[in-house]
Amino acid sequence: MTQVETRSATAPAVAGPAPRFKRGREAATGWLFVLPFVILLVAFLLLPMAYAFKLSLYRSTLIEGEHFALFENYTQAFKDPLVRQGVVRVVLFGLVQTPVMIGIALLAALLIDHATSRFSRFFRLAAFVPYAVPVVIGTLMWGFLYSQDTGPLSSILHVDFLSSNVVLASLGNVVTWQWAGYNMIVLYAALQGLPREVYESARIDGAGPSQIAWRIKTPMISSAIILATLFTILGTLQFFTEPLILQPLNPGSITQHYTPNVYAFNQAFSFQQYNYSAAISFLLGAVVFVGSYIFLFATRKRSAL
């Protein structure tokens, strides 16, 4: 800290005529500021990724030991029907989950933006509370609610929420419960930032509250909606915690290859296939990257990204 101060104090006196020299010093100071971030990024993201990539190029067997296999793990993953099933499932899940959740979040945000009563403040907080509950605890709680014999929901509705026909919707409900409030706050914050005069002129032009909400407010926060949608897509493709936590409740419907992430996890930690697991993870990473790029490209006119 003291070093940085001395440098910046002496810099103008020394470096008057030599801008190149000065820029170098500024760059050094800049690096110093981002150093904590860079260290964490390298230690906890880039190095593990490089290690995982190296793992994905090798094969390790009980008899023959470890040997270099190039893309053998990747070709195996491409041919593996369980990987394909998982990818199809998360894509399907995302196609339904994303519009439902963003729709609920947008509707709630528009409503609490319109009404400024004490009730709306309470509602805003109440909708946000599930996000403050850790995912694992929230999921365990839903697992209890879904229990067929002991859960309160099954005794009223007579539905086995964890049977293979309904389990994806049950998982979607947990995700919506957890994240809709968070997305609502993001959209609500964007709505709060809009200039109020626009509404006034719309009202003079004869627009009702629902028209203002749908035709003025919604288009004006489209970049925030796109951001929230992008995060939701990323989240659904990497769907992991909820199925993993609920799996023991009905391992017949939530299988060990339920989503690609769950499959990669089980390959590593149930079957000791670390190399194959790393290859699946990298393939999934590529799918997520391409998916989010396509989405950003398709919406580039509306997003600020």
């Binding site: 697992g143 209890f144 229990s147 014999d149 409740l249 009905n250 391992p251």
Partner: peptide
Amino acid sequence: DTKAYGTTDFYNG
């Protein structure tokens, strides 16, 4: 019964 081992329903049973 086919309730998974170690679940709330199992202990309840």
